[in-house]
Simulated assay, not measured.
Amino acid sequence: MSSDQSYPFPQVFVVDRGGGTHDSAQTPNLIPCWSFPPAQERVRRKRGGCLGISYSLALILLLLFLLVFAALGFEAYQIMHIQKQLRNARQVEPEATLEFSAPQKQIGVYEPEDGSKGERESIRPAAHLIERIETNRNSKTLRWEHKVGQAFAIGGVVYQKEDGALRVNETGLYHVYSRVELIFKNCHPTSSFEHSVFVRREGDPAPLTLMNAHRAGFCPQHSTRSWTTENYLGSAHQLKKHDKVYVNISHPEYLSQSHYGSFFGLYKI
Rank of each mutant, 00 (worst) to 15 (best):
K117V: 15
L129N: 02
G149F: 01
T190P: 00
F152L: 01
D204W: 10
T224S: 14
M211H: 13
A206H: 10
L239I: 03
H242M: 12
R225N: 12
I130K: 03
A213Q: 15
L208W: 01
K147W: 09
G118Y: 09
L210C: 09
T229I: 12
P125T: 04
W144D: 04
R167I: 10
E202N: 10
S178I: 00
N138C: 00
F193L: 03
G203D: 02
G172M: 04
A213R: 13
E181V: 15
N186V: 08
V158G: 00
F218C: 08
D204A: 13
E113S: 10
T209A: 03
L208F: 06
S139V: 01
L239D: 05
I107C: 06
E121S: 09
Q106H: 09
Q150C: 00
P220W: 08
S191Y: 05
E113D: 05
E121K: 14
P205W: 12
Q221K: 08
V197Q: 09
I123N: 03
F152S: 02
N136E: 11
T209C: 07
Y232S: 13
I123L: 12
V197T: 12
G156S: 05
G115D: 04
E145H: 05
I130S: 02
Y174A: 05
V180G: 02
E181P: 00
L129R: 02
F198Q: 06
K147E: 04
Q238D: 07
A206F: 15
R179F: 00
R201H: 12
I183H: 11
G115S: 07
T228F: 00
V197C: 04
G155H: 03
R215G: 00
L208K: 12
H146M: 00
L166K: 09
H222Q: 10
I133N: 05
T135W: 01
E134D: 07
H128R: 03
K185W: 09
S139M: 05
G108S: 15
R167Y: 01
K185L: 11
S235K: 14
R143K: 14
H214L: 11
